[in-house]
Design a protein around this nucleic acid. Sequence first.
DNA 1: TGAAATGTTGGGGCG
DNA 2: ACGCCCCAACATTTC
Length: 476
Amino acid sequence: MSQDAVLLWFRQDLRLADNPALYVARQTNGLVIPVYIDDLKAAAEWQAGSADRVWLHGSLSSLQQDLRSLQSELILRQGPTLHKLIELARETGARHIHCNARYEPWAIRQEQALQQALADQGIELVCHRGASLLWEPGTIQTGDRKPYQVFTPFFKKCLQSPPELDVIPRPKTLKAPAQWPKSLAVEELNLLPRLHWHRDMQAFWQPGEAQAQRLLNEFIQTKQDAYSDARNIPSIDGTSRLSPYLSHGEISPRQIWQAVAEDGRRSGTSFLREIVWREFAYHVLYHFPHTTDQALKAKFNQLPWTMRQDWFERWIQGQTGYPVVDAGMRQLWRIGWMHNRVRMIVGSFLTKDLLIGWQDGARWFWDTLLDADLAQNSLNWQWVAGCGADAQPFFRIFNPVTQGQKFDPDGRYVRQWVPELAQMPAKYIHAPWTAPDSVLRQAGIQLGNTYPEPMVDHGTARNQALKIYKQLPVSI
DNA sequence: TGAAATGTTGGGGCG
DNA sequence: ACGCCCCAACATTTC
């Protein structure tokens, strides 16, 4: 190629606006070759789950279209990252590769290994910061230079050094080579499952940068004011639903922060607080990389979690007999997403009522969530199990009936996802086994037949969990 | 970003 | 009028 080319290696930053690596790649005045590599082994045991790959299919298609509208392309390759990067560099004559940093433990190791191996080939890999986090991990420390393990002081410290709101605009042009290197078609990556369980997901969601911006604007204009209350009611579409876009980098936290700040209403703060929770999760993962698999507080590794496969299956399938739990698990399976309030309820039920380890719950979420994010998933599961950073005490055990009555008082959420309970009056919908026979009959429900009896008695399960908790040593 | 047990208070029924 | 009991409503403590 006549003009110098640089590779723009897309990872979890599938957007054109506010993309530091893209910005710098353009500044070189060379040709920019955008590339995405589907490397099934890079993340080892944290390879993207099946739902995540469904999303990725839509994402890559969308990014490809967006790049084509700039007369550019997205080159797709499949295989070991190092091998594919070298291959493309050879084909295009590129000596520089630009990418945005990731912060998962495996990704940090990968980056270092790539940088070294590529340098041996005379290729420089430049990882840019600031794309996916507002505060670089390691920069927020306590007074005595330790990492925070509690959210609120972390939050306050972050606000003392507010992020610079300098969103990089979407480029209008991108220099294309006379001839593009060969590329796989998106379909050839085989991101979609052969069994077509993903149809509901695809009907419900529309991946891509443009849709993320639409959702953000919609949130600020129509949802933000009610957010602090509405976000707890799973039958209300009161949350931003931006999580899958964030986890794939189709929108950056800086874009969100800037849009909310520019709008200026006070109601934005409770939403921005959640954005900082996301930062906190990465911060904790960065400082305590073992927390993907082990409790942050070591003593909790001794809890006698036991995997009872038959119980686990009932939880997965939404057949526990507790309607709000079942609604959540079925929503997850159908659309690859679960309302946050319900994530807490099903997490509490798995870890405390069934005494199955949070790691098993995290694995299931990892495979089924469209917004699967290693930092968020690990932190939140440890939070619910009571063994992590800023965790609730272990003895805080959600009552699935009370939670249902409190946050889904009319039962709309349950009716939507557990249709066999659709005719149940609100009074009994969260505890069908307490309904008089006549009510059950009229609602067309036969307990143990059309809908299960509760698989465990919550009161008994709660006492059992408390007993186990009390056996733990008091400190450390 | 709990729930349940326990304690306290105060109104009303009733002998 | 008074003491007693019951119990809802609320507060506090405990897990």
